[in-house]
Design a protein around this nucleic acid. Structure first.
Length: 444
RNA sequence: GGGCCUGUAGCUUAGCCAGGUAGAGCGUCGGGCUUUUAACCCGAUGGUCGCGGGUUCGAACCCCGUCGGGCCCGCCA
């Protein structure tokens, strides 16, 4: 894959890009590595084509060739499939760089001999990487020379008789103990396909990271058992996920653990939460992750009522908050809000017309409250339509007519927005035209 | 055809490998909170553990079967 050109927008070979040094492998690897970087994963990369060229696989290739029958027996007995008579545990590459249609005819200490369908024949030097092991052998050989102790893989490899099972036995044939295996289920984007590193596109994770803070994406994975399928919900599920994560961060989990009265079950649950939050952190840091002055949910509202980042910045307790990180967060939020993923129930919508249905059914108390509110709003209009002036309007009116605060807010929301629960009212009011607020309150 | 994973409260799920009174968060409902970060605090509500058998003093857990969802059985990586 490092020797062929990348696909262009239409999926055809892009020779111009290839000339410039981008390969087919780069094309798919780049966005994947970019996603890893955003998630705080800093891998050490080992390029397989280089490893072959450097001779890392020589011993394994030689063993596989010499033990051809044993290798065949392992694969056939464990996977239950039958290999063709002409099968060899090595895939030679011809002088044109092609692997198709070549039949192995023999081997010696350094070369594998082959013949092609069209009558050509040749030899390739396996100490120089002029060919490779088939995947089922390549994987365990890699475990050996890299001393892999734990290998996680998708469920497609984890089934009985799958490539991990055959690999484990082949690994022993190569002289090493196989790594601890860990099978994980797949992650899918709700309504879309799987997010997979090998099944083609890496658009999934990249797209997800344009909407979600990386620590929340990490939390999604860290808080789910590997064998459980994750359906990543980019709508309301994301808000709930962020809520759950931020709620965990607010609690001092370590202190809770010191309670001697805890049942074993509860203790384990808290320990799991500690692990999940620790694994969710993108960077090693002394400050708890997510300490950015504003919750995901609240930011979703602020981003909708203020279009300038500076204004939003001024609306949160921003002491000690990194401005760059905050802007990145806010930009992601705006991107999400602008996308089709953003749930309608999170959209802050001001009524176009008065809620005449509700206005016609006010109790006497509610009517009193409405009048008091109108008076307060009119006063604010004269003294200055600012958040500071507006914030006392509802509590003052509620006290005046002796109505519980919650109900006063509920009624105000119903008249202005048409829903009975909404974000903090004052900033919302401040962002509205006074005449519009009064019209909706008066109902004319 | 053979095999692997999965199904627990309205939602997200822990517990299953090593059987011992089904736990949690969200939601909902009630209460608290003299400015609401869709916040916070307190309380309550809610489960035939997919279904049917079996083993056991005792089964969400072990065994057999069955239904639903996903996957594997490539000279692909």
């Amino acid at each position: 894959m490092f020797r062929i050109p990348p696909p262009d927008a239409e999926g055809k070979p892009d020779l111009a890009a290839f000339e410039a040094g981008t390969t087919y492998a780069d094309h798919f690897l780049h966005p994947f590595l970019q996603a890893l970087d955003m998630l705080g994963v800093r891998p050490r990369l080992v390029y397989n084509h280089e490893a072959y060229a450097e001779g890392r696989y020589v011993e394994h290739v030689r063993t596989a060739l010499k033990e051809r029958n044993r290798v065949r027996e392992i694969i056939e007995s464990i996977s239950g499939r039958e290999l063709a008579d002409a099968w060899w545990p090595y895939s030679p590459v011809d002088e044109r760089g092609c692997m198709d249609g070549l039949t192995v005819t023999g081997f010696d200490d350094t070369h594998v001999h082959w013949s092609a369908e069209d009558g050509r024949s040749g030899s390739c030097d396996y100490t120089k990487g002029e060919g490779k092991l088939p995947w089922r052998l390549d994987w365990p050989a890699k475990w050996c020379w890299l001393d892999v102790t734990c290998e996680a893989f998708g469920k497609d490899h984890g089934t009985t008789g799958g490539s991990y099972d055959t690999g484990a036995e082949l690994c022993r044939l190569f002289g090493s103990e196989p790594p601890q295996g860990l099978t994980y289920e797949w992650i899918s984007l709700r309504g879309q396909g799987a997010m997979s590193s090998s099944a083609g596109t890496t658009v999934g994770p990249i797209e997800a990271l344009q909407l979600v803070p990386p620590e929340i994406l990490r939390y999604l994975i860290a808080s789910t058992k590997p064998a459980k399928a994750i359906e990543f919900d980019t709508g309301m599920g994301l808000v709930n996920l962020a809520d759950a994560y931020e709620r965990l961060l607010r609690h001092d989990l370590e202190a809770k653990l010191e309670d001697e009265e805890l049942s074993r079950r509860k203790r384990v649950a808290i320990e799991d939460d500690i692990s999940a939050t620790r694994l969710s952190s993108v960077e090693e840091r002394s400050v708890r992750p997510g300490a950015v002055g504003v919750t995901f949910r609240h930011l979703a509202m602020l981003a909708q009522i203020r279009s300038s980042n500076d204004e939003v910045w001024g609306m949160i307790p921003n002491e000690g908050v990194d401005r760059t990180e905050f802007d990145a967060r806010l930009d992601r939020m705006r991107h999400w809000i602008a996308s089709h993923h953003f749930p309608d129930e999170m959209r802050v919508g001001i009524r176009e017309e008065p809620n005449s249905e509700r206005l016609a059914n006010l109790t006497a108390e509610e009517e009193n409250l409405r009048k008091a509110l109108i008076a307060n709003f009119e006063q604010s209009q004269e003294e200055g339509w600012t958040e500071a002036n507006l914030s006392a309007n509802v509590p003052d009116a509620a006290r005046e007519v002796d109505l519980p605060l919650r109900e006063a807010y509920r009624l105000t929301y119903e008249l202005l927005l048409g829903v009975d629960v909404a974000p903090k009212l004052a900033p919302l009011l401040a962002a509205m035209e006074p005449s519009r607020v009064l019209r909706l309150m008066r109902g004319v």
